[in-house]
Design a protein around this nucleic acid. Sequence first.
DNA 1: TCGTAGACTTGCAGGT
DNA 2: CGCGTGCAAGTCTACG
Length: 272
Amino acid sequence: MPELPEVETIVKGLRGKVLGRIIKEVQVLEPKMVINSDPFRNKLKDRAIRRVERQGKAIIMQTGQKAYLMVNLGMTGRLIFYPDTAPVDKHTHVLFSFSQGGQLIYHDQRQFGRLQLYEGIEPEQIPFVMGLGPDPLDAGFTWQRLAHLLSKSRRAIKDFLLDQKRIAGIGNIYASEILFHAGIKPLRSANQLRMEEIKRLRQAMQGVLRAAIEHRGTSFSDYLDVEGKEGNYKHFLKVYLREGEACSHCTTRIVRTKLANRSTYYCPTCQK
DNA sequence: TCGTAGACTTGCAGGT
DNA sequence: CGCGTGCAAGTCTACG
C-alpha cells in the first residue's frame, strides 16, 4: 500500500497540515514502534516541523538543525491529522499534539512500520536513505541510467523493481502495473531486456507512478491519506488483484504467480 | 586460486 | 487465506 505514490500523497498532505507547527507533546503508546522512544519524546517536544520530504517510501520531517524524524509506514502505517482531537484506538501507536492545535497520529495495524529520530546528520546520511537507489521520478533517471542498473542484475525484472537498493519507491502493486504497461513479463531477467524494452520500462515507471500520484494513491484495504481519505488509483489498476479477469487490452485472463513470495499479476498475452 | 564484496534467497515480524 | 514492507541470516557467484 504505501509505495511511492501513496507516500508522496502523504508528504504533500503533511506539508499542508503540519508544516510550521510546533510539537507540544509526543505520546508513545506502543514503544516498540519507535526506536529509542524516551529520547524521541523529549527531543521532539517544542520543535517545529520545518520541512517534509520523501526518500523512496520513507517520510522525512526536519525538526531542527540536523534533526530529522523518519517514518517508515511498513504495510499498514498511517499518518492522519485531526484539526482537533484525534480518536485513539488499539492501533494508534504515537500521538503528536501541536501548540497551534491539532493532533497527528501514527496508526499501524500490523506494526511493520517504524519511527526514528536522527540527530547530527543530514538526511542523505541516514542508513536507510544511503541504501536507496535513484528515484524513478528524478530528472536524472534516464533510460541509460536504468540500462546500467539492469545490466548488473540477472534477477527477474519484477524482483529487480522491488529492490529498493536499485530503484527507490516501487512496491508490489506498482511493480506489476508498471510491467503490464511496459509489456514485459515479470519473470524476464533484468539484464536481458532489449533497449526498446528498457525505454518502455522507464516510460511505464514514470507514467504509472505519476498517474497514481495524480489520483492520490491506491486504497483497497488500509491505505488512507493525511486527511483520512482513500486514494482513487485502484480504479485504474490493470492487473493487480485482477486474477482471472479479462485483460483490458486483449481479454486474455490475468494470471497470478508468486515471485520472491509475493503475488505477481500479468497478462500472458500482452506481456512478452 | 583464494578471499571477499556483492548478489541473491528465504523467512519472519503483527493483526485480522 | 493472503498480505501493501524491510530486514537478518544464510548461500551463492563474480571479480580483483
